[in-house]
Write a protein that binds this DNA or RNA. Structure first.
Length: 581
RNA sequence: GCGGGAGUAGCUCAGCUGGAUAGAGCAUCGGUCUUCUAAACCGAGGGUCCUGGGUUCGAAUCCCAGUUCCCGCGCCA
């Protein structure tokens, strides 16, 4: 019998073979193999219950027929429980075979990679220029990066594109403020982006104070959009300053984009969009603007998708349409994934509907479009953190605070480390904590920002996972073997802690699949935490460095597989690991 | 008004798409370091899964109604 990486697949395959051949079941029988409660077994097949219901037979008797039809094997024991569940309790021999078959990170990756690699554009982070990234901006960057890594791990070609908000109306206000204050952009001092942000805030105040100021700001924007050279020069400088600030954050977070084509990149590509959509009668003029309605849709038949404002200017919707076209034509992408705040869901739904009609009118295949949205980070008032007024916590400050708190713990624990080592560990631990705090929770949920939450280092946190890894590495150092060169063994997982750790490995494939299917990193994060918990428990109960070589080899193998899965998983989450803590 | 999301332990959250006695972390209380790293481990207490109906062998999960909070809905992105 072939042992597959995903044990559910192995079991399901065996069941299907049996049921297809059996007169009691047939081809339409769904085994429904799921991880089981450890009290009952390792996997369970639930499919008999609904099938018996549909065919008006006794489920327990039917379950018995299924078991009778299964081939004899020493890989597992089966039993019927409750109303008709079939439990599979895997044998020690199964575990040992699995452990030997998927022996290193490469073979694990190979076993799970896709057969149909796609070219996927991942659109994430996308901060607005002239503003600093604050804590509210962390989610798109971290979630997006993690999904990029996941898809790459699965064998897809991923194009990371940072769709900068560099052509919005904020420039009217900012240019107005710069001119009013007679600011020289080259002389903004050590923290130019903060200065720009203050200017923007000041400008915002001014335009609210007086009508005429608002008019002037609008005029600056029009001049910019019409290619006024003075304003364009200022705009370029602003973008440069912004990019420097973003890049320093990406550097810390280990994020690198293949492209940073902002909205400005598409400003000359929008005219043809209007023409095409008009010629296909997808959009129409309404109240002076060019809009798209979707008559078949209950809501978007009334709620417009504005692709050209009544003043003739383009907007977010327009550039997004042009962006799809560019990514399809120039990069030949099969799929585009947008990682943005959930408040933009209507926008993307409308965008996707519009693209679908447009491409189908031209009989072209549109890329598959997906909006991976996340909840908002809220302030203490339960409202979204916003930049316009007040001073939200800067992202850079959060990251630095995380590193400095980790630093205290690192030094406390090991006072004699070199400065270089302290630096390395504090960074891995502090940033890991922040990343994990966000990634370990369902992305669709809003949460209130708190230092305590973001910087926790005990319990279900990245440092806990990193600590488990450090302990494993320590064992291998003491044992003087490398994880890939452990002597083979005949000793099978026997004790409770050996068995339950080995058992945990088997659920990794399913977790990866689910994470990829729903594009929700928290499935992986939670699993890794559970795995680390199993390992810690194993570590406390079973000494690895024992006299008996056979037992030692098995336990080293369990350490090695824990390490592999933690390495792979943490790498996908973008969290660094340490060999010592 | 229309549409979307959410309501699970004192707090923060999981709950594998309908499975068996609902789980973690934090906090509280108790135990474990001359033994591979105590950022750890073991244990205890803590629940009207918002409320009320329904669907069925079986519901935190699906459907309906109500309720509370959040978000979106014509020229911001």
């Amino acid at each position: 019998m072939l042992i597959e990486f995903d044990s559910s697949d192995t079991i399901e395959g065996v069941i299907r073979t049996a049921t297809t051949a059996s007169k009691h079941f047939g081809e339409d029988f769904e085994p429904q193999v799921r991880p089981a409660d450890p009290r009952f077994g390792d996997f369970q097949a639930n499919g008999v219950l609904p099938f018996a219901k549909k065919n008006n037979t006794n489920p327990r008797e039917l379950a018995q027929k299924l078991i009778d039809a299964l081939p004899q094997t020493d890989l597992w024991e089966t039993s019927i429980a409750g109303p008709g569940f079939i439990n599979f309790k895997l044998s020690p021999s199964y575990f040992l075979q699995w452990l030997e078959k998927f022996a290193d990170n490469e073979s694990i990756q190979k076993s799970i990679q896709t057969e149909k690699p796609k070219k996927i554009v991942l659109d994430y982070s996308g901060p607005n220029t002239a503003k600093q990234m604050h804590v509210g901006h962390i989610r798109s960057t971290i979630i997006g990066e993690s999904l990029a890594r996941l898809l790459q791990f699965l064998g897809h070609e991923v194009i990371r594109d940072n769709h900068l908000g560099d052509w919005g109306t904020q420039f009217g206000i900012l240019l107005y403020a710069i001119k009013r204050e007679q600011i020289v952009l080259d002389q903004l001092g050590p923290d130019p982006i903060a200065k720009l942000e203050n200017l923007y805030r000041q400008g915002n105040k001014w335009i609210k104070e007086e009508e005429s100021n608002l008019a002037e700001a609008r005029e600056e924007l029009v001049k910019l959009q019409n290619g006024d050279s003075e304003n364009l020069t200022l705009w370029r400088k602003i973008k440069e300053i912004s990019m420097d600030s973003f890049l320093s954050i990406y550097e810390i977070l280990g994020v690198r984009f293949d492209h940073s084509l902002g909205e400005s990149f598409y400003k000359d590509k929008v005219e043809s969009i209007y023409e095409k959509l008009l010629s296909h009668q997808i959009c129409k003029e309404d109240q002076g603007a060019l809009v798209v309605f979707h008559p078949e849709h209950k809501r978007f038949s009334k709620q417009p998708f504005i692709i050209r404002k009544s003043d003739g200017a383009s907007n977010y919707a327009t550039t997004d349409l042009a962006t799809v076209e560019y990514r399809k034509n120039e990069w030949n992408s099969d799929q585009i994934i947008y990682v943005t705040d959930g408040r933009q869901r209507d926008h993307f739904e409308q965008l996707f509907l519009t693209v679908e009609k447009w491409y189908s009118a031209e009989k072209r295949e549109s890329p598959s479009l997906q909006h991976v949205w996340f909840g908002t980070i809220l302030g203490d008032d339960n409202k979204a953190i916003k930049t316009r007024d007040g001073e939200p916590i800067k992202l850079i400050d959060l990251l630095n605070e995380a590193i400095s708190r980790a630093r205290k713990m690192v030094i406390e624990k090991k006072p004699d480390l070199t400065e270089e080592e302290v630096e390395k560990r504090s960074k891995a631990i502090g940033l890991g904590a922040v990343r994990y705090a966000d990634l370990s929770q369902d992305r669709t949920l809003d949460y209130v920002f708190s230092w305590e939450k973001m910087l926790a280092m005990q319990g279900n946190t990245a440092p806990y996972l990193q600590y488990a890894v450090a302990r494993i590495c320590s064992i291998f150092r003491k044992a003087q073997v490398v994880p890939t060169q452990i002597p083979s063994t005949h000793y099978q997982p026997t004790t409770d802690s050996e068995r339950s750790l080995a058992r945990k490995f088997l659920f990794f494939p399913g977790v990866i699949k689910q994470t990829a299917k729903e594009l929700k990193p928290h499935f992986l994060g939670c699993y890794l935490y559970e795995l680390a918990t199993e390992f810690s428990s194993f570590y406390n109960q079973s000494k690895v460095m024992v006299e008996e070589d056979e037992i030692k080899s098995l336990r080293l193998t369990l350490c090695a597989r824990s390490l592999s899965i933690l390495q792979i998983g943490m790498d996908i989450l973008g969290i660094e690991l340490l060999e010592e803590m």
